[in-house]
Design a binder for these strands. Structure first.
Lengths: 225, 225
DNA sequence: CGCTCTATTGATAAACCTCAAATACAGTGG
DNA sequence: CCACTGTATTTGAGGTTTATCAATAGAGCG
């Protein structure tokens, strides 16, 4: 269930149908750290991540940022905002070289009519997102910072982990500040925490790269306070 | 937009259609503080609140509760969990004498086929819920406790406020602990905070009843730190 | 090799929780 | 109508967690 929201909106369609659908959209290339859309802007297009990764976040009036989620290849964003004729509820920024495919409103509506599976998949993905957010909301309310950091890393690991010799690398450029914004804390606390875990041999970290060397230890830490 | 999620799943249908639909479900009466369903249970029925109010919350393994939202008359809960053949993601408990109408899976699917508006409305309500939760997530990460309490009260006021001589009464039995669980803090902090606001003339409170006497002051407090 | 961005670390302070104890309140049954 | 009982609320003291600020070190890039 953890990878449903990672899975394609186009589940259940044939490859043929899929390529046909892709052709109805326009590809767009983004450099690293470029803005795709900003919260509050009128939602005119929706985007499918083809390569790379987007950071979806919310920013408050004082500039404090909170990362809602990272969207990787195969994930569709802003579709519902477009359908609702609404505004983007979050800000989307690429974090590395990224290619997205964009559709405008009329096209996506047309696609959904032609391929009803798309709407159903979207609904399911939406539900996963709600679930995830509710979980994180509970964690944010009830757990201590280090615990939340552990859970964040594990969550990111499950969604973007790749096995290496030393452990599981989180395959996202991830600064201390990013982890902080994802866990609801500060970059200083994240730095201290990662350092202490590194000494224990649970993680290894370099500049914007985190490898989890002992997932089991992290899990048990997250669960037993 | 704040009252969309409060609005009926049956928007756009005629009264005739509405009464017909209601008759396909079974009414169920609940006393105050009785459990309707528990998180993790298999989701077999969905419920429409007819009278009264439900508290939807999540509870972690140590018993710490977080209130996701209060569902009042006209609000449907657990529909998507049922459709997905899943488990209830939250716990639902009545907080006063409450009447709900229940449908099982096959009936609700049948209804959605017969009245497509229902599905569309559900989707919209779901989106409002996501939006709300994302907002609160940001607030939880970025704001101080008193600010969050202010926002909680204002949010509850907008959804369940009724005008009285002294101000706007939040028409939900609401203990200090409830407010705490909704704001991500402790009942002690809520108590102190409400006390100090009472001295300033912003709110009046009795046992499980909160009246906001100066909403404007609260709003400005929430926004200007 | 400088410049910029990221990470580390220490010192300090603030925000908030926890625990304990007292008090107020509403409902119940005599 | 009143005493009784179980909650809800208030309040204080003390301690912990975590944020903030400041300063330094390190990494990568042109």
């Amino acid at each position: 269930m953890d990878n449903l929201s990672k899975s394609d909106v186009f589940n259940g369609l044939t490859n043929e149908q899929y390529t046909k659908i892709i052709k109805t959209g326009f590809p767009k290339r983004l450099g690293p750290k470029s803005m795709l859309f900003h919260q509050g802007d009128p939602a005119e297009k929706c985007y499918l991540v083809n390569q790379g990764r987007l950071k979806l976040s919310k920013i408050n009036e004082h500039g404090k940022e909170v990362i809602i989620r990272y969207a990787g290849a195969g994930e569709l964003t802003a579709a519902v905002a477009v359908l609702k004729n609404g505004k983007y509820p979050v800000t989307a920024q690429s974090i590395e070289k990224t290619e997205v495919i964009q559709w405008d409103k009329s096209t996506i509506i047309d696609l959904m009519h032609r391929y009803p599976d798309i709407a159903i998949n979207m609904l399911n993905i939406l539900l996963e997102n709600i679930d995830d957010l509710q979980h994180r909301y509970l964690e944010l309310c009830s757990e201590h910072v280090e615990q939340r950091i552990a859970r964040s890393l594990l969550r990111l690991m499950r969604r973007a982990g790749s096995k290496t010799l030393n452990g599981i690398l989180i395959d996202i450029p991830l600064s201390r500040e990013n982890v902080a914004d994802y866990s609801g804390t500060t970059l200083y606390t994240v730095s201290r925490t990662l350092r202490s875990w590194e000494k224990k041999g649970w993680v290894r970290s370099a500049r914007e790269r985190i490898t989890i060397t002992d997932p089991h230890a992290l899990v048990s830490f997250a669960e037993n306070r």
